[in-house]
């Protein structure tokens, strides 16, 4: 019994930490897909790109991965800016975003992933930092102790700060409120004298910019390889849809739910089943509760 409680407790703690980390991966998509309705399926692959940039800066210059992520952020902001510029002019303006817009992002996903394979190969890469590899043991009772790996703790803390900062920005500032207004009524915004396209462009760039720090966290938590993006696709979309489109708090909570579910399955059934968890939850949510746990409807309209 003690063994079971020990396992369960560890799985729960790891799951919650993992959830915070997932929130940092999903927050960008929560902005681009949830608020702006741009289905950026290349987002997880951009995170992997961010992770490789962190790897490059860490292995060549010895820069701390999180600092490397911060350095990469402006680059991703510009990348997002450019992508939205193309996306708006070619697809959104003519109303062709559903079929061709999706194919466009799928193509981007593919180009980034294969480009990384060509540049770095398919080997797993990792970074070096003082907090990687250490862990913190909390002894609770006889045969029961909880081990908290520092790399997960660091990822959790950084992710929480970043997510809460974005949430505060979107709810407290004028521009943040304009972004949320775009999601609700573009016409009204235009009547108020705000250019909705400009707001969308900046917000989209912000969403993509999260790939800098998010990617750095990714390589801190686990060794990375180029095809990881497609694996995380299930996670981030499950989180954004489960959390209710456009709800940042919902995204946070959904991330913790997915993290705990994955961690428990990995502990009791083996880690190779973990990918099926988030995708399974995603399918179930789409089939039975497409509006998510706390959000506006994602249904047909």
């Amino acid at each position: 019994m003690a063994v079971f409680i020990d396992l369960l407790l560890n799985a729960l703690v790891i799951g919650i930490l993992l959830g915070g980390f997932y929130a940092a991966l999903a927050i960008g998509l929560s902005i681009t897909f949830g608020l702006l309705d741009v289905v950026n399926i290349a987002h997880p692959t951009m995170l992997v790109l961010g992770a490789f940039i962190a790897f490059l800066l860490n292995s060549t210059l010895g820069i701390d991965p999180i600092l490397a992520g911060v350095i990469a952020t402006p680059f991703f902001f510009i990348l997002g800016w450019l992508i939205y510029q193309v996306y708006y002019n070619v697809f959104e303006k003519s109303g062709a975003e559903s079929l061709r817009g999706l194919a466009f992002f799928f193509g981007l996903l593919f180009i980034i992933e294969v480009g990384l394979v060509i540049q770095f190969g398919v080997d797993h890469r990792l970074v070096e930092a003082p907090y990687i590899g250490e862990s913190w043991n909390i002894i609770i009772g006889e045969e029961i102790d909880v081990a908290i790996p520092f790399r997960l703790l660091v990822a959790f803390v950084v992710a929480s700060i970043a997510t809460l900062a974005i949430r505060a920005y979107l709810t407290k500032t004028f521009f943040g409120r304009a972004v949320r207004a775009v999601a609700q009524d573009m016409m009204a915004l235009r009547l108020m004298g705000v250019d909705p396209i400009r707001v969308k462009r900046i917000a989209f760039a912000m969403g993509v910019a999260t790939a800098g720090v998010g990617g750095a966290l990714m390589i801190i938590v686990l060794p990375i390889e180029p095809s990881l993006g497609r694996l995380y696709l299930g996670n981030v979309f499950a989180i954004v849809v489960l959390g209710g489109l456009g709800s940042i708090s919902g995204t946070l909570l959904a991330a913790v739910i997915i993290g705990v579910a994955e961690s428990i399955v990995a502990t009791f059934f083996g880690p190779s089943w973990a990918p099926a968890v988030s995708f399974g939850i995603l399918l179930a949510v789409l089939a039975f509760r497409p509006e998510g746990l706390f959000g506006k409807t994602a249904g047909a309209h």
Binding site: I41, S98, L102, V241, A276, F279, L286, G299, A300
Partner: peptide, 22 residues
């Protein structure tokens, strides 16, 4: 998934491929 917007069908098919592979 086809009751929903096309986007969800697209994501669901991606999910399906990964689940089947697992």
């Amino acid at each position: 998934t086809l009751r929903l917007r096309g986007v969800y069908f697209a994501i669901a098919t991606l999910a399906l491929a990964i689940i089947l592979e697992t």
